[in-house]
Amino acid sequence: MADAKKLAEQLKKLNELRGPVPQELRDRVAAQNKAQKAILDALKEGPKTAPELAAAAGLPEDRALWYLVGLRKYGKISDVAGRGDYPKYELKAGEAK
């Protein structure tokens, strides 16, 4: 585990070397967090498809799909088995809250 003081020093030095974290990146991460939260909130109602989640979260469908892929890869959501043109996604057990 990193020593808190050493880490703080490293990050400070990093800011000196590279300047502050760019605003564009901050905005992007904020938008990502908002989108992911909206998707996870919508999924609390039950399994949904990518277009349904896009509508619920106010996102373009391809972006909603991309966020779903990330959440799926990192274990927050999973596929619902079944047929149909649009597969559904659901919260993974333990991720409901």
Partner: peptide, 14 residues
């Protein structure tokens, strides 16, 4: 793969 199945990128349709 990214989707775990074959979907199209615009809207996640099979």
């Amino acid at each position: 793969g990214p989707y775990g199945r074959v979907l199209r990128p615009s809207d996640g349709m099979v």
